[in-house]
């Protein structure tokens, strides 16, 4: 294969936009949780009580998905900047994805086990 610099993948806008949207989602969630926790007070029972509401479970789930997508774009950018060999970079991409999907699944399990 010729060794030439290739660009023109024609993606990036969606990720860039998603990173901003997910950041906004996380910011709003954090604000909501701070308000809720200040009303209900701290402690395990308060937490548990809060998470018993399916609405809170739902927004927490959205938060985690946002976090994962946000992290995916960010971590991928780091691999793209610092890891040059394509094979290693692809492996790292896959590992990152697997880890993030795993975390998302694990979070879901925790949330609905409560």
């Amino acid at each position: 294969m010729v060794n030439r610099v290739v660009v023109g993948a024609h993606y990036g806008l969606k990720d860039w936009l998603a990173q901003r949207v997910t950041a906004l989602v996380m910011a709003v969630y954090t604000l909501v949780m701070v308000v809720l926790l200040s009303v209900t007070g701290g402690g395990f029972d308060a937490w548990r009580g809060l998470m018993a509401h399916s609405f809170v479970r739902f927004i927490t789930f959205i938060f985690v998905l946002s976090l994962c997508y946000h992290a995916w774009v960010g971590i991928r950018d780091i691999w793209m900047d610092y890891v040059k060999p394509t094979a290693i970079r692809l492996t790292l991409h896959v590992l990152t994805l697997l880890a993030l999907v795993g975390y998302a699944g694990w979070t879901t399990q925790i949330l609905w086990r409560l």
Partner: peptide, 14 residues
């Protein structure tokens, strides 16, 4: 815009 829509060409700007 097509020419720039690329994870490297434009979106490396942080």
């Amino acid at each position: 815009l097509d020419n720039l829509e690329d994870p490297y060409r434009l979106f490396r700007c942080h």
